[in-house]
Amino acid sequence: MLLAILRRVGQMFFVMVGISMLVFMIFFATPGADPASRIAGRNASPEILEAVRKSFGFDQPFYVQYLIMMKKIFITGDLTSFVNRGWKVVPAVLDTIPVTLSLVIGAAILWVIFGIIIGTVAAATRGSWLDKLLMILGLIGISMPVYWLGEVMNLVTQSRYHDTWMFSWVPPLGYKNLSSDPKGWFLTLIIPWITLAILYIGLYGRVLRANLIEAMQEDYVRTARAKGLSETRILLRHALRTSLISFVTLFGLDFGALVGGSALLTEVVFDLHGVGKLTYDALQNLDLPVIMTTVMYASFFVVLANALVDVVYILLDPRVRSV
């Protein structure tokens, strides 16, 4: 077990070093990419360019610049923005993490619960009108772009129907701190959670249904029937348990990506200042230290999510344990 954890940590280290070098190269070392001229502006004189280059340390060799940046992110934590000089980047990213985590974890709980319920009910009633209805709803959920759905949600809950009994409880957009205002935190996030989860509920429900139907054709299900078990028990204890393995794989990938900043569109629509929003803003004005830091953070979470998936695998599938 300790060895497995160490291997994971090592893996995480390599992934992060690789990604950081790649991102650094793209913005600093590709031909034509001159950060100094970008910072100095379009019509800057050569003297100003030179001054900028010196002031930001671009006159040093690449590896020195890279190492200084890494040191400032991980050791001293005092990396400052290129655009907004003096603005500390690392605390800014750390501030956004609770927002993104609140959004994504809440949505994940919703989509796992409803994905499992919808997939199982559809598989159990395969071919019936209920199954068809659920699958069509799932398809609609997958097809709706999250930025559009979010805007519609806002239109309905913030403006058109806000003053009716249905949505008068919905607070204005923005994030409330969990520790100081738990009720506000919960209320502001309900609509974003639902919006983000709908796509994944549809997707996971459909995938699980397909897996369950495949599992119900397996020999061990016939054995379970021959044992005289009820159909419900066969579906839940035998077929669902084995089908959850691919469900978990999918979950690890999606969860890692969302925590890493893929929830950007939801964050923008609902005015939540999360990691995605921060990265998006940094990309708008090419604020390299911020991009670098958020990328580091994202790759850390993707690797962490995959490590967690491996742990869940071990719990779910005994065949993995002996390897």
């Binding site: 061990y220 054995t223 021959a226 599938d317 005994p318």
Partner: peptide, 14 residues
């Protein structure tokens, strides 16, 4: 009771 042909797949793996 019934015994099946392929013992490799007749038992639930988990």
């Amino acid at each position: 009771a019934m015994i099946f042909q392929d013992p490799m797949t007749a038992l639930t793996p988990v």
